[in-house]
């Protein structure tokens, strides 16, 4: 099978998965207890008012009709309207997306950049005390919950030292310096936890290299361990890091939602939280759909990247890596 056929095959699987996901999401979200009309009208709502609002919003239509209308609009790029605010979901989503994107765009590369040397040190010194220390740090760092790590950073850098703001957000256009200072702690929170996680994969992939013949040969001809690891191990580690990053996207997004809560950032996570609280299903289902689509898309890209790196994979059936 050619590479292009394999790519098309994976693309088809991607689209089919997305379609199934949309049905599952819509079903689950609609099955949530409660009623958005009731939630919007709040205490003091009469049953007639709730019924009227439900009718106006089409909530009394059969399930399959509502699903079909939603899906059809979604395919055409119409994300629908929020019940609670009356605003377009896309209009609400766009500014939030930017904040979450900044978080990920900064924390992911920083996490990788920290994880590589950290993992390398842990591998290199794995039989020494300092290697053990590095290993222990990554173990602890990964075990710490995101909100706890974030709270510690707030206490140290915002409350004790007073160097950085405790929470909040300023857009890059209104003040780049304030924007950076408000993002630093949340980005550091995600980066620290993720770096510790990645470092463990990097360590084992470097250790894999250290038992290979070519590494022993490199050492035999007089290369230092660092040189051997960098020349032979880095590519190996990078591939395994890529896999883990792909698999971690879902966790990263969840981490970003928690971090947004700790640092009161107006991102996707806080929109999801407030939409759930207001029972604003039109917003909830689009955000969940978006998160699923992002995760699937990243995995698709990783799959395709593998195909390009290792064409032997194109011959395998299925293609579910």
């Amino acid at each position: 099978m050619s590479i292009s056929a394999a790519v098309i095959r994976r693309l088809a699987v991607f689209l089919a998965t997305l379609l199934i996901a949309s049905l599952i999401i819509f079903t689950l979200v609609q099955a949530l207890p409660g009623n958005v009309a009731q939630a919007t009208l709040g205490m003091g709502a009469t049953p007639e008012a709730v019924a009227e609002l439900s009718r106006r919003w089409g909530l009394d239509q059969p399930f399959i009709n509502r699903y079909w209308d939603w899906l059809f609009a979604l395919i055409q790029g119409d994300l629908g309207h929020s019940y609670a605010t009356g605003l377009g979901v896309g209009q609400q989503l766009a500014p939030r997306l930017g904040v979450t994107a900044w978080l990920l765009v900064w924390s992911l590369p920083i996490a990788c950049a920290v994880a590589l040397p950290l993992g390398m040190m842990a591998a290199m010194w794995r039989r020494r005390r300092r290697g053990f220390v590095v290993n222990a740090i990554t173990q602890v760092g990964f075990a710490v919950p995101v909100f706890f790590a974030g709270s510690i950073l707030v206490i140290v850098f915002a409350l004790k030292l007073g160097w950085l703001p405790a929470n909040g957000y300023v857009s890059i256009t209104s003040s780049p310096a304030a924007w950076a200072s408000h993002l630093l702690l949340p980005v550091a929170t995600i980066a620290i936890v993720q770096a510790c996680f990645f470092a463990r994969y990097v360590r084992s992939s470097f250790i894999d290299v250290m038992v290979e013949d070519y590494y022993r040969t490199a050492r035999a001809i007089g290369w230092t361990r660092w040189r051997g690891l960098i020349r032979h191990g880095l590519r190996n580690a990078a591939t395994s890091l890529l896999t883990v990053v792909g698999l971690q996207v879902a966790n990263l997004l969840v981490g970003a939602i928690l971090v947004e809560k700790v640092f009161v950032l107006p991102g996707l996570g806080s929109l999801l939280m407030s939409a759930v609280a207001a029972h604003d299903l039109a917003v909830v289902q689009v955000i969940v759909m978006l998160l699923v689509a992002v995760v699937l898309l990243i995995n698709l890209l990783v799959d395709i990247a593998y195909l390009l790196v290792d064409p032997r994979l194109a011959g395998r059936a299925g293609g579910g890596l």
């Binding site: 915002a158 409350l159 007073g162 405790a166 929470n167 909040g168 809560k261 700790v262 640092f263 009161v264």
Partner: peptide
């Protein structure tokens, strides 16, 4: 400023936010 989380509110006040 809308700060739903009580801890975040306290931190914002303590840090001058």
């Amino acid at each position: 400023r809308y700060i739903p989380d009580p801890n975040a509110m306290v931190s914002a006040m303590l840090s001058g936010g």
